[in-house]
Computed example of a mutant assay.
Amino acid sequence: MSKRDYYEVLGVARNASDEDLKKAYRRSAMKHHPDRNPGDASAEAAFKECKEAYEVLSDGGKRRMYDQHGHAAFEHGMGGGNAGPGFGGADMGDIFGDIFGNIFGGGARQQGPRRGADVGYIMELDLEEAVAGVEKRIEIPTLANCEPCKGSGSADGKVETCATCHGRGQVRMQRGPFAMQAACPHCAGTGKTIPNPCPQCDGNGRVEEEKALSVKIPAGVDNGDRIRLAGEGEVGPAGTPPGDLYVEVRVRPHDIFARDGDDLHCEVPIRISQAALGDSVRVPTLGGEVELRIPVETQTGKVFRLRDKGVKSVRSRHPGDLYCKVVVETPVNLTNEQRELLEQFEATFVGENARRHSPKSSTFLDGVKGFWDRMVS
């Protein structure tokens, strides 16, 4: 079952502000929370769905990835955020505590220091590059520290304690029977305010920019392999560490080889005369051409194994093998002489003599005869 659009889940427009997202999230979470709907599986599923949507859309890096790529941005653990949107197994108590604090007067849970969002990047490689390893220069959009204010968000370096929450970052709200803790709307939960915000970053301490990096891809990587570059993601709020960059490898289809783990597969076309009389042919490998001996009377589809001519992956000690599948080609664009020779050759296949030269045809004809005999009887 495909996922619903996150904006649809929260019931907001795609240009919704952070405050609109927060209000929509609280409204939906209050409505569907399992404590208010005991035993209702559909309510629990709706609660998890809105939690997942808000986790993505409330994070600037994740939201940009989602707006550009949709749900595909977070496949295989990719995308912004420290863990990606794998929220289905989250503990209900933890989730409720994150939104509202402890109900009926309990204090809010104190979370550890935040960090910058992780960033995902998909790198496409040729098979030869993936097998041999390569160093590539990439450019990624990210959030970096604002230079004028050194990431503080303050034009003059002054930061004050929030007068609304008195530095706690949380405010207490009473709604009917519910006593709830929520992030302070004045300081966005930081406990600090900036009297003179930096005009370059509007007090955020971070600005969007393109960052150039040189990424070393080890030899033997395959589709779906990820390389983690610690600290190369988005910088966090002032005083917190940056996230990481995850480079996921995608290997382009190859004209000759198909990869299966450490092994490679290819097809080797040969003429009918080579298959019947035997021959030696040159076949390509990633290390250069090698000779493949075709025995007499080789049938099409025969597979030959060349040991250690495959791939040595990042996880293996020894290279895999190369499997060459022989394909006997029917000759085309025949000259008159070639046609006459084939006609003379075909004329030698008469009566029972023809059956012993074509073992598969004989087996097939025997099967057909037995089938019709059974149909008649």
Rank of each mutant, 00 (worst) to 15 (best):
R175F: 08
V207E: 08
A155D: 14
C165K: 01
I194G: 07
D156W: 04
G236K: 10
E209H: 03
V235C: 09
L143S: 11
V221I: 06
G239T: 00
Q200V: 15
A179Y: 03
I217H: 04
Q170P: 07
C198N: 13
K216A: 10
P148F: 04
T161G: 05
Q170A: 15
T161Y: 00
K211Y: 00
C187Q: 07
A179P: 01
R168D: 14
C184T: 14
G233P: 02
T193S: 11
P237N: 08
E147V: 13
E208Q: 07
G220S: 10
G176D: 12
T164N: 12
N196C: 05
C198D: 14
E209T: 12
P195L: 13
L229R: 00
N145D: 09
A238F: 03
C198M: 14
E209W: 06
T190N: 05
N204V: 09
P148D: 10
P197R: 07
A230P: 00
T142L: 06
Q181W: 08
M180E: 12
K192W: 04
P197A: 12
G231V: 02
E210R: 10
N145H: 07
C146A: 12
V235E: 10
M180S: 15
T193K: 09
G236T: 05
K150M: 12
Q174E: 13
C201G: 01
P185E: 08
P218T: 05
R172F: 10
K150P: 00
A182G: 12
V215E: 00
G220Y: 02
K150I: 04
F178L: 14
P148T: 10
R226C: 07
T142W: 04
G205K: 01
V215S: 02
E232C: 03
P199L: 10
